[in-house]
Design a protein around this nucleic acid. Structure first.
Lengths: 84, 84
DNA sequence: GTGTATTTGTTCGTATGTATC
DNA sequence: CGATACATACGAACAAATACA
């Protein structure tokens, strides 16, 4: 279980994004696999939905995940174009 | 018709839970009787489904109601064990 | 048996308010 | 003041279970 540093200088959403990014990079979360939902993240890490969403937003901006309303967030296909 | 206080400090979902809890406590909604559906609550009280669900979640956690997917939410039997 | 409607379950999208740093 | 974080609230979409014609 990965813990978040509540008192440290690094924002929670960034710590959470780092954790998920590591899981993607290590292959623990392969392309196409759903990333834990916002609700799951709130429960697993004890953060608000806002923080969970913020973390996923970071990964989305990095092109690492793709989000579909009503379905979920998935690990992106590395072969998808984000900036040619 | 019981109105909700929109501007007050008490969250809508809590006000709604209070109303339903009172109806159960007074015997207006006896054990086994179905509680108004989420859709009905949204229409009756003019709240979102999110708020209606939140209110029912509170009552479920209190052991006052039981919910079955596809069926509905029912007033719990007081003789049901929640914490022995 | 087959479809349709109802109801709850789950998920993301968005906005507002409050508090803290 | 701005960024972070939490709570509340409304919308929207889809899935799954149940009920019924």
């Amino acid at each position: 279980v990965t813990e978040l540093d509540l008192d440290g200088p690094i924002p929670l959403y960034r710590q959470l994004a780092d954790i998920l990014r590591a899981r993607i990079g290590s292959g623990e979360l392969p392309a196409g696999r759903p990333v834990p939902s916002e609700l799951t993240l709130t429960q697993t890490f004890g953060v608000s939905r806002d923080t969970a969403r913020h973390a996923l937003l970071v990964l989305r901006e990095e092109g690492l995940v793709i989000t579909v309303q009503g379905k979920g967030t998935y690990v992106a296909d590395p072969g998808a174009e984000t900036s040619p």
